[in-house]
Amino acid sequence: MGTKVLVIDDEEDYRIIISDVLRGEGMDVSLACDGEQGLALLKEHPVDIVLVDWMMPKMDGEKFCRAVRTDNALKNIPILMLTVKQTSDEELEALHFGADDFVVKPFKAPELLARVRAALRRNHG
């Protein structure tokens, strides 16, 4: 059975791109358009790793991270933050509120895969 990934992004293009890349590697990808939807989905179907966009309506990436980290059942799931923000302050901020790593858009497929794998490896020790 492949690795289960949840991708949360409000931009359809990026949902398509990321799921294409991950499915190409045999991963099992589920999609959500905002933090609320993603959180609901995550509670029903736990996954191995979450990729979440920072800027989203309803519940943004930051709030999503906090919500996951304060939920006992979910708090150990690795989270990768997707962002177009690029100052190192903001990247640090992302790590502070609970993301394990971040991927800056636009990204290259190999970079995305490498970061996903690294986060999974760290999590499984």
Binding site: E11, D13, Y14, I17, D20, V21, V84, K105, P106, F107, K108, A109
Partner: peptide, 12 residues
């Protein structure tokens, strides 16, 4: 954002 999407789509 759109430039990145274009790049990624081209690669795919």
């Amino acid at each position: 954002s759109p430039l990145g999407a274009v790049e990624s789509f081209l690669q795919l």
